[in-house]
């Protein structure tokens, strides 16, 4: 199963990591998604935006199998998640990591133990010593202080919890990372650092990132493509300039509103500065 999936990935003709087709979700009378299509390519950071209540989190939950859709197909690493057997699904679970909105750390385990949970679950043969070492370098990698290992989640700040959540999501060196509003509730410095962390991880480890966010700075700075959720489906996917070229009221309001403009200007300014610096060094 796994070998086949990887072989397909290497051939390059199959660089779609997540494929959602004709997804339909409803809660009672309320229709959340209808005919929703979405594809996520290998190695990209895909941002998912949409107004409150448009079902961004529900979409993520449908992909990762926490919410059974009423209709549609969901394929992750070419495994049809709705029809595949438990073994195949477990194989996919080894290859993704998920950061929930509230980090969802296990409150009765220490931070280091939280990071070790997936490793223990999937690779029971790893020695205790190696597990501790892995937890240690993962903790450093996500930028947590070295004394954070034996602390319990209740003793951590919000930003540290998110980093710890990422460390747990990265425990198995996944190929695919789901982030649900990673920068929500962080201060601007922390949020910027988190954006940098996401990019770093993608560049270093070749991750594919599925990112739900409301943070316009995050969208501008780190997302390769952005998918816009509205009217119960994905109305557009593309880079932000591509989206801005579309004549859709919500998209225009979202990116052209006062907050959107500020984020755009910040990015332009940074680019201009980078170009100037390059020119200086050449001159």
């Amino acid at each position: 199963m796994r070998a086949g999936g990887e072989a397909a990935g290497k051939d390059g003709d199959e660089d779609i990591v997540i494929s959602v087709k004709g997804l339909r979700n409803c809660f009672g009378e309320q229709l959340i998604h209808e005919d929703l299509d979405l594809e996520v390519r290998r190695g990209e950071i895909l941002g998912v935006v949409g107004g409150s209540g448009t079902g961004k989190s529900v979409l993520m939950r449908s992909i990762i199998g926490l919410q059974r859709p009423d209709a549609g197909e969901v394929e992750v690493f070419d495994v049809p998640m709705l029809t595949a057997g438990e073994a195949a699904q477990q194989g996919v679970r080894k290859r993704w990591g998920i950061l929930f909105q509230g980090a969802a750390l296990f409150s009765t385990l220490t931070l280091a133990e939280n990071v070790q949970v997936p490793l223990r679950e999937f690779y029971p043969r790893l020695s205790e010593k190696l597990l501790d070492e892995i937890a240690a370098y993962k903790i450093v990698m996500v930028g947590l202080p070295p004394d954070a290992g034996p602390k319990f989640p209740a003793e951590l700040s919000g930003g540290m919890k998110k980093r710890a959540g990422i460390a747990r999501a990265l425990a198995l060196d996944p190929e695919l990372l789901f982030l649900d509003e990673p920068t929500a509730g962080l201060d601007p410095i922390g949020a910027a650092a988190f954006d940098q962390l996401t990019i770093d991880l993608r560049d270093r480890l070749g991750l594919t990132v599925f990112l739900i966010t409301h943070d316009l700075d995050t969208l501008w700075t780190i997302c390769d493509r952005v998918a816009v959720l509205a009217d119960r489906k994905v109305i557009a996917v593309g880079t932000i300039p591509e989206l801005l070229a579309l004549d859709h009221e919500w998209i225009q309001e979202y990116f052209r509103g006062p907050r959107g403009r500020a984020a755009e200007e910040a990015v332009e300014e940074a680019e201009a500065r980078a170009e100037a610096a390059e020119g200086d060094s050449k001159g």
Binding site: T110, D132, A135, Y137
Partner: peptide, 12 residues
């Protein structure tokens, strides 16, 4: 990168 992350960390 791994080397950079190799610091004494308290785990327990």
């Amino acid at each position: 990168q791994v080397e950079a992350a190799d610091q004494p960390v308290k785990v327990r």
